[in-house]
């Protein structure tokens, strides 16, 4: 089976047909995708800016900040699901789109970065006192997280422009 056969199967699937279904479906999914992206970034801003410790953000208590991780995961899941539906709705357009390819690469990097945070730094961070500085590797991960997700948003927005 070639890649194009696979893309055809996705496009012909019920998910693809649903995405191209009633006229309101695409804008409805886009709205969920935009709300999900705002929620994702909101949670990350609390966690990452606390870890980086820029300005007043270092006074956010660390443990409560880390409690937003499930919220971030829910927001990401919303966008993963709506994203998969978009992809099935128009698979050839996305698969061969430069901005989309880079967006996916950055999401994979952001995912690896998040795993590194979870397994390497999370336990150490949860014992930090209020206002206490996080270890340098954790700060680097947090800064990378914000940079990568900003890139993801920009590349997503450029999909119609960077074919």
């Amino acid at each position: 089976m070639t890649t194009n056969d696979f893309l055809n199967i996705l496009g012909d699937s019920w998910v693809g047909e649903m995405a191209r279904g009633p006229f309101w479906m695409w804008p409805f999914l886009e709205n969920i995708h935009f709300i999900g992206l705002s929620a994702l970034v909101g949670g990350l801003l609390v966690i990452d800016l606390r870890v980086i410790g820029i300005g007043p953000a270092k006074y956010i208590p660390m443990k409560p900040a880390l409690s937003l991780i499930p919220y971030v995961m829910i927001a990401f899941s919303l966008n993963l699901i709506t994203g998969i539906i978009f992809f099935c709705g128009d698979p050839f357009r996305y698969y061969y789109n430069t901005a989309f390819q880079w967006k996916m690469a950055l999401i994979v990097l952001a995912g690896i970065n998040a795993l590194w945070f979870w397994f390497g730094e999370h336990a150490k961070l949860s014992t930090l006192a209020d206002g206490e500085s996080a270890p340098i590797p954790a700060k680097v991960i947090a800064a990378a997280s914000l940079a990568l997700w900003t890139g993801v948003i920009i590349l997503g927005r450029l999909i119609p422009y960077l074919e």
Partner: peptide
């Protein structure tokens, strides 16, 4: 705590 992010 969120007030620390209002500048953002």
């Amino acid at each position: 705590a969120h007030a620390n992010l209002y500048a953002v």
